[in-house]
Every structure is written in C-alpha cells, then in structure tokens.
C-alpha cells in the first residue's frame, strides 16, 4: 500500500517536472523545473529499493540520506519562494529569503550535519532504521537528525501558509483558489510531520501517508496553476489574434 503511494507520488512529480520542459526551453520560470526535478529525485531516494542501490554506489554509509535531506531543503526553498511570490505574499518571501529564513536554514543544516557525523552510519539502511538500532546513542542522534530534517520544510511551509489561506478566500478564479487550497493542505501536512516522534509505532504508516499526501498536494496544486495558465494563455492569444 505504502509502496503504491510512494511510486504514485514519484510518477506524479516526475510527470510534473517533464511537463515543465517546454517552459525550461523557453527560459520561463526555470526554477520550478529544477525544484520539481529535485523533488522527484528526493522521492526516488526516499523509496527503499532505489535508496539502497544509490547509497551502495556512494559507499554504503548512508550519505544518500544526508543528500536526500539537502535535496528536500533545496526543492522546498525554490518552490515555496516561487509560490509566495506568485500569490503576492511578500511577507512569506521575506520569511523564506530574509535573515530569519537563512538563519533557520543554516542552523538546521548544521545540526543535520553534526548529527550525521556523530552517528555510526555504516551499512545502508532506508530511513536509518538499522543505524538507530545499533546503540542507544545512535537512536537518539537519529531522532534529532530526523527532527532537523523535518524542521526546515515545516518552517518554510508555515511561512507560506497564511498567504495560501488568504488566496483561498480571495476572489481569484476558481481554479487558482483550488490550487491554493491544495498548496495550503500540503503546507499544513508538512509541519504536522514534526509530531511524528509522538506517533505510536503501530500507526507508523501514518508518517508515509502524511508525507506523500503533502507532496502530492503540492504537485497537484502546481499542476493546476499550470493548466489554468495554459488555458488563459490560449484565450488571451485568441483575443489578441481577433484584434489584429
């Protein structure tokens, strides 16, 4: 079940990235393509099979997991910045790109790297499950490491959430409000992941559901804007053609 969700998300994200190639060639909003490509790579790395294969290539010390965290940071940074700018949320942009955002990114990255270095990370293991099982100290470090990895995406999502909620209630076209709603759901789900350590082990599948649903919401919301923009572009084109 979880595998289906993971691969569906991977395909959706990959398709969204591919659909951006024409715009990439036209040099229009290229950072969205790069962000979606990074996101696709991150999803690939979050699935057990590909993770083990790639990490083995990188030396089998779970460097792929650290790489995965920074890929997520990069993808979410560029995506959220574009989204906040698009919806005219200058406060959101400021929170992400301003001093507070850079401080959050720097601090969290430092914690991430320090935890990783302090761990005995040998032996590829998706989700660092086997690494945590090695010793008490490792288990604690994996916990902190995971929390740091979730903290930055949570910060960025909380930064853009007010803007999204405003857009949902605004008189924008229905399709754009719908996509704002999807993006808002994603921005609520990601910070919820901070509560994962409190989830009882029996409900561990909830972690996957929340994570991948959030990504699907983001991808679907962006795709919807893209569709709406394509439609409007055609409409505008027709009108100006008539005028000529």
């Amino acid at each position: 079940m979880i595998e289906i969700l993971q691969w569906t998300t991977l395909i959706a994200s990959g398709a969204a990235a591919l659909s951006r190639i024409p715009n990439l060639v036209r040099r229009k909003n290229r950072s969205i393509f790069y962000a979606l490509a990074l996101l696709t790579l991150a999803i690939l790395l979050s699935i057990r099979g590909p993770y083990l294969a790639i990490d083995t290539l990188l030396g089998g010390t779970n460097v792929a997991n650290l790489l995965l965290r920074f890929i997520i940071f990069g993808a979410i940074f560029f995506l959220a910045l574009r989204i906040a700018a698009g919806f005219g949320d200058s406060r959101g942009v400021q929170l992400i790109r301003g001093r507070a955002g850079m401080l959050a990114l720097g601090l969290i990255s430092a914690v991430l790297v320090v935890c990783f270095v302090l761990m005995d990370t040998s032996g590829s293991s998706a989700g660092l499950v086997d690494v945590a099982a090695k010793s008490q100290q490792n288990a604690l470090l994996v916990e902190y490491y995971g929390a740091a990895g979730r903290a930055y995406p949570a910060y960025v999502c909380l930064a853009i959430l007010p803007g999204m909620l405003r857009a949902v209630r605004s008189p924008l076209p229905a399709m754009l409000r719908m996509s704002a709603a999807l993006l808002a759901v994603g921005s609520i789900a990601i910070p919820l992941s901070l509560l994962f350590p409190l989830v009882p082990p029996g409900l561990g599948f909830l972690r996957f559901v929340v994570n991948y649903t959030a990504i699907l919401c983001f991808v679907a919301g962006l795709a919807l804007i893209w569709v709406a923009s394509g439609r409007a572009g055609r409409k505008h084109g027709r009108v100006s053609a008539q005028r000529r």
Binding site: N29, I83, G86, F87, G88, G230
Partner: peptide
Amino acid sequence: RRQEHDQRQTETIWENLG
C-alpha cells in the same frame, strides 16, 4: 479597481508559476 486588482494578482501568479 477591485477587478483590476484581481486581474493583476492572477497575472502575478502566472508570471511566477505559469
């Protein structure tokens, strides 16, 4: 004015995310 404002907002979205 409200209409123009909404229109501008929509265009900003397409400029940034379209």
